[in-house]
């Protein structure tokens, strides 16, 4: 039988931990974590990862190269308002007469910038709180969990709206507001995962070796959670981009700045739907959707790559297809002349 890939190993000794609270997929702890180079090759070969990465990179490039792609100030009033897409203005003009294409391109900067930064902050913050609570337990855990639960329970959107209304409008406010209200979910996820890792013998062994708590948290426990951290970052960024656009759409951002969210705000303000000027909101909306899609794809791909159970199932399915066998109730008996 032709061997497809020499380097993939199935470790039969896989223990699947019970799904921790808030965790979406079971994580197999004992199985062989892929070496760093294997990670990269697997990532590149995974179709979902490719699609996701391409999308995200594309938009990141657009944001970076905005001055080259759309050289003029996107807030300039350049033509008659609500003009349908034409050769000159390929996305048409807004309800005020601005270039939708230029706006969409430049809007990527704030939207992606705030989105990724929020994702970064709430992942880090959630990790610190969750890991500390899990590792130290006792009083520390009680207090941190209380805070986490309170923040989790407070209705998010009203809180966001209230805070944003008090502070000076703008992307920094939104960044601040999202960061301090949305870390709780991540904290719970990290805490439960870290709790189950803390019970592992290798953590006890580190304690007995005389390791400091800092070392154990950051060099023993956290690296075993790297796939969850990556997934949390992707998910949090997705949330950040969407929430930011949402807040700006509600008018809580600085509406004189250009971002995908404010584009949507103005499109709504100028009754884009009623007038049939679909080009004023579709591009921005589509960009948000595509970036979210890309992030979600990368999330799935990360899951597949790091979760050996899913990998094993995929490989089993492939192997069965090669031999044209189906999953039957009874063990198939395939007698061949060659044993």
């Amino acid at each position: 039988m032709e061997v497809k890939d020499q380097r993939i190993e199935i470790d039969q000794r896989i223990t699947i931990e019970p799904t921790p609270v808030g965790q979406l997929t079971p994580i197999a702890i004992q199985a062989a974590p892929p070496a760093r180079r294997e990670w990269l090759t697997r990532l590149l070969r995974n179709r979902k990862a490719l699609v996701g990465a391409v999308l995200i990179l594309f938009f990141l490039l657009v944001a970076l190269l905005a001055p080259l792609i759309a050289p003029n100030d996107p807030s300039d009033f350049v033509a008659a308002p609500n003009q349908a897409p034409s050769r000159e203005y390929i996305f048409g003009t807004t309800g005020q007469g601005q270039d939708v294409f230029a706006q969409t391109v430049w809007g990527a900067r704030i939207s992606l910038g705030v989105g990724f930064t929020v994702g970064f902050f709430i992942t880090i913050f959630g990790a610190i709180i969750g890991l500390t609570a899990a590792y130290f337990g006792g009083r520390v855990d009680d207090i941190l969990s209380l805070i986490t639960n309170v923040v989790l329970v407070i209705p998010g959107l009203p809180l966001l709206v209230t805070l944003a209304a008090f502070l000076p409008p703008g992307p920094l406010t939104i960044l601040f507001v999202l960061s301090i209200t949305s870390w709780a979910w991540n904290a719970r996820v990290f805490r439960s995962q870290a709790l189950s890792l803390r019970e592992k013998d290798f953590v006890s062994a580190s304690i007995v070796s005389g390791e400091s708590s800092t070392h154990i948290i950051f060099r023993e426990i956290l690296p075993n959670m790297s796939s969850i951290v990556a997934a949390a970052f992707l998910g949090s960024t997705l949330y950040g981009i969407g929430a930011e656009a949402g807040l700006e759409f509600l008018g809580l951002g600085n509406v004189s700045l250009v971002s995908w969210g404010t584009i949507l705000y103005w499109a709504g303000n100028n009754a884009g739907l009623l007038t049939g000027a679909w080009w004023t909101f579709v591009p921005a909306g589509l960009c948000i959707a595509l970036v979210a899609f890309g992030l979600a794809m990368m999330n799935y791909a990360m899951d597949e790559i790091t979760n050996p159970r899913l990998r094993a199932e995929k490989e089993t399915a492939r192997v069965l297809k090669d031999r044209s066998l189906r999953n039957a109730r009874a063990t198939p008996v395939v007698r061949s002349s060659a044993p």
Partner: peptide, 9 residues
């Protein structure tokens, strides 16, 4: 547990 007392990474 020989499998659990060493950190897999």
């Amino acid at each position: 547990d020989p499998f659990g007392s060493l950190n897999p990474i």
